[in-house]
């Protein structure tokens, strides 16, 4: 007993009352509740926009998707004269090859740069200057990358990117988008590497591992989930980009009627991609075939969304897989 003596009943009852009144709830925390409501509203607005967007496109493209999904996936971009032949095949092929170029060029170069910056480079003014620039590059509007791609890949090296198409090819587009997402890949990979606990690296160095062994056996496995998620998310960004593609010459309706998706030669020919197909079709309002193109555009958006969603699912799955591997 803190009071040093046994209390009589009256005193202890008084103490009890005082304590009870001092710790009892004094009305509602108005500010706190208001703040919570504001936060909930912001979340609600976000969700509402998303739901409206998805509902709108699914509703618009519902007929196309339910009645002739396979034909739509295999169909040509066309002019609208034969609505039953209209489809997104060429767009899917173009987007597929763009994704391949991003994976082949942006991922290794980006991850390599990140490893160098995080693990090897000395932290001095020059390395800080480079990192600042990479961060700025991540914020540059995509149309600027389109201009860069036009100058470098279309007009600069047409003999490589597309001898028969004046450089306006899936190769140019893929390279342009690879450059576009490069800063994002570097930044996310750097952040994943920075999150590797220093104790892990010290433990490795402590038993006589070289820097390479430490990176190979400790840092990279630990950072792998983060690196992968970041790179795959940047891939979905690349697939959704339209503006740079217009500048590097994505066109519609020029592709062969029955292209083969795995025909590597086709990457140096004229091309189109999903965002371009959507852009083209939505521009057909107030034309004769408006009622053909507008539902098809909505259906194409759904297809692109599913495409991106699948990529994200793969990203989540891989992240989960590597995290489990890291812990076991």
């Amino acid at each position: 007993m803190a009071f040093g003596k046994v209390l009589d009943d009256k005193t202890s009852a008084r103490i009890q009352r005082t304590v009870a009144s001092s710790i009892s709830r004094k009305g509602v925390d108005k500010k706190g509740t208001a703040f919570q409501m504001v936060l909930l509203t912001t979340l609600f607005i976000t969700m509402l926009i998303l739901v409206v967007l998805i509902f709108d496109v699914v509703q618009g493209g519902w007929e196309v998707l339910t009645t002739r999904l396979w034909g739509f996936m295999r169909g040509e971009i066309g002019s609208g004269t034969f609505p039953e032949r209209l489809g997104v095949q060429q767009g899917l092929y173009g987007s597929f090859w763009i994704a391949v170029f991003v994976a082949v060029f942006a991922f290794p170069i980006g991850i390599g740069s990140a490893i160098y910056l995080e693990e090897y480079s000395r932290k001095n003014k020059f390395s800080r200057f480079i990192e600042l620039n990479i961060r700025n590059l991540a914020g540059v509007p995509s149309i600027v990358y389109g201009l860069l791609g036009l100058f470098l890949f279309v007009e600069g090296i047409p003999f490589l990117t597309g001898p028969n198409s004046n450089g306006r090819s899936a190769t140019s587009a893929g390279l342009t988008l690879a450059v576009l997402v490069l800063p994002i890949v570097i930044i996310t990979a750097q952040e994943a590497l920075r999150a590797v606990p220093s104790g892990l690296k010290e433990g490795s160095y402590g038993v006589g591992a070289t820097r390479w062994e430490t990176i190979r056996y400790q840092s990279l496995p630990y950072a792998a989930p983060g690196i992968l998620t970041g790179t795959l998310l940047s891939m979905s960004r690349a697939i959704g980009e339209a503006a740079p593609l217009i500048l590097v010459g994505a066109t519609t309706g020029f592709l062969g009627s029955n292209p083969n998706i795995l025909d590597v030669g086709s990457v140096r020919e004229r091309f189109t991609a999903m965002p371009i197909v959507i852009t083209e079709w939505t521009q057909k309002t107030n034309t004769v075939n408006e009622d053909v193109f507008i539902p098809s555009a909505a259906a194409a958006i759904v297809v692109l969304l599913v495409f991106v969603l699948l990529l994200n699912i793969v990203a989540i799955y891989l992240r989960h897989y590597f995290e489990k591997k890291r812990e076991s």
Partner: peptide, 27 residues
């Protein structure tokens, strides 16, 4: 690197690798 192979270190905070017990010692 050779110096650290001959002079082992144990750190303030236990820092096992996120691997199996065997792999930790075998590293």
């Amino acid at each position: 690197v050779e110096v650290r192979r001959r002079i082992g270190m144990v750190f303030q905070k236990p820092n096992p690798f996120p691997k199996s017990i065997f792999d930790n010692v075998a590293y």
